[in-house]
Design a protein around this nucleic acid. Structure first.
Lengths: 316, 316
DNA sequence: CAGAGATACGTTAGTGCTTACGTAAGTGCT
DNA sequence: AGCACTTACGTAAGCACTAACGTATCTCTG
């Protein structure tokens, strides 16, 4: 599913899809079992069933919808003979919604079906149903406490305020080198033996053999890294390029790449290559734009299991 | 929020509400920052951006919507100057959607905004965002493997096939007594000291002092329990009534209650009372229907912290 | 190579919700 | 008491999507 790759950007779309799935499933069940109810009615009917006669606004607030939605839904429920509208004698503005006898009878019969729904969802989703409910609840609460729009605007201001800077390796940044690379390795592949060795001691395995490491910095955050590894005199490998997922789109990758290529020239290398994997499409496109050319076959004697792309830099 | 109390029954509604919240938040951000994009466009635009020119059906499949939806969205995108429709020369039925130059320019500028969105969501929801995404992914997968409609219908058939039976205490059911009571105690209150003692050794604390325990059984599942505790000669307390959350609505509670009242009569008790809490509204309604009458104040010298309701049985 | 069936996709009608608006009824301030 | 305000709620218009349909095009089979 493509949407999964968009992560937090497509949260709305994915939630909607799941929501529609459950609505549809419930309706299918009701219809198959001959229940005269629709999935969208449930919150209103259950509220009136649990709490008793209530005004439109009261119901709307409880189930988290607008009074218009409840009012329109009430039209349908009245038409279906499930609800009566009554004027509130104490307050002429209010319309009190009351379940009819028919509704009481219908709802009483629905017990086993609702039970089956809960059981079926539990069977189908196993423990994920509870995890989903917990996550929803936690998110609802968090959104109340820390409105997401403000948070996003604040982050945007912070991002705009300070530019992405590229800085060379420094010992105190070593753990960032590990963190940033582990992030994408674990997400898309796994940490191969050679990765673990190099990531844990980059000074020894990258800098000492005549290589270089750069970091991208945004304010106080180290958001990306990239390494230039000297494989043999004049032959360099571009490797361990990683940008924090949440910080992509700021051009940090390109800046790091440019820094590595500049360093390659400064050291008067004659060959610069890289190995990658075809699933990392945005990265490959960036390499191409920077001057790397896709080779027809993978590099002979590659160190990496995951390598299925081999590119060589062609100066222009 | 009332919907939370419906649990798995209202999954669709809650997901929809969250979904709308995120769509709305994204649109607010785009508008505030002056980006000429709407949240609903994102899946299509990002797909074309990541994958390149694609046909309508291809996009629809990737983002999990119907071709109609994509087609109609395309109308808007064309109108906004973001997308061009092209006939596929190789297959005259297909319409290839291509991002315009303007779209490329717009999307390139959106990088920092998307970054801010990811960062903002992470800040606002903390670890719950990742939990939500994981749960969504797990549910999507589970729904594919075990369609929920079939699961529900199967459960319903199982429920209809065998009636709820009430059975008296037996030693091998002891752990069910603990499980069923722990479920609601932990959910709404906490397990007080006296609860723990009684639940762990019901034979000693309920049966030996002249009480009784009943269980509700559905097929192989023990789905509910209820106890009659003799407090002093002829004075009985109805206590430890619990029905498995997923099995509510089958009338098991009422059956257990009737069994306890019958037992109370069989033992020729003269007083039957219960203590409960006002949040357990459906249970209180059931007690009332069975003949319990709400007392004006709580029982003097109650054993329970949570008791704020005191009811006494009035034979009719 | 004809014709049945499948596929691609635009169009239309309908659904479930929203926002915006209008009206009636209650509330509060002077 | 009078007038601005708020509140309750129905109605209208609009949006995002779906299902159903129609048309054009392609593919497969005998």
């Amino acid at each position: 599913m493509y949407l999964a790759s968009l992560g937090k950007l497509a949260l709305g779309s994915r939630l909607k899809a799941l929501s529609d799935h459950f609505y549809g499933a419930a309706d299918e069940v009701y219809q198959t079992l001959g229940a005269t109810i629709e999935s969208r009615w449930l919150p209103v009917l259950r509220y009136l069933w649990d709490v008793g006669p209530s005004s439109v606004t009261e119901v709307a607030d409880a189930i988290g919808q607008t009074h218009s939605a409840v009012s329109q839904l009430t039209d349908k429920l009245v038409h279906a003979g499930m609800v009566r509208r009554q004027r509130d004698p104490a307050d002429g503005r209010r319309t009190v919604l009351v379940l009819t006898e028919k509704a009481h009878a219908s709802l009483a019969e629905l017990g086993p079906i609702w039970c089956a729904v809960r059981r079926g969802v539990t069977f189908s989703l196993e423990e994920h149903a509870a995890q989903l409910l917990d996550a929803i609840e936690a998110c609802e609460r968090a959104l109340q406490e820390r409105p997401v729009v403000q948070a996003i605007l604040a982050e945007h201001a912070a991002i705009e305020a300070s530019p992405v800077e590229v800085v060379p390796y420094a010992p105190e940044l070593r753990e960032h080198f590990h963190r940033l690379n582990a992030q994408w390795l674990e997400r898309y592949f796994r940490i191969e033996e050679i990765d673990g060795v190099v990531m844990s001691d980059p000074e020894r395995y990258i800098l000492q053999p005549g290589g270089a490491i750069f970091f991208a910095r945004l304010g106080e955050d180290i958001i990306g890294t990239c390494a230039l590894l000297q494989e043999s005199p004049g032959v360099f490998e571009l490797t361990k390029m990683g940008v924090d997922e949440t910080f992509r789109g700021l051009g940090a990758g390109k800046r790091l790449l440019d820094a590595c290529i500049a360093e390659f020239h400064r050291r008067e290398g004659h060959t610069l290559f890289l190995e990658s994997n075809s699933v990392l499409r945005p990265a490959l496109r960036m390499y191409e734009k920077a001057g790397f050319v896709l080779q027809p076959s993978i590099r002979p004697g590659s160190h990496y299991e995951r390598a299925d792309v081999y590119m060589v830099y062609q100066d222009r």
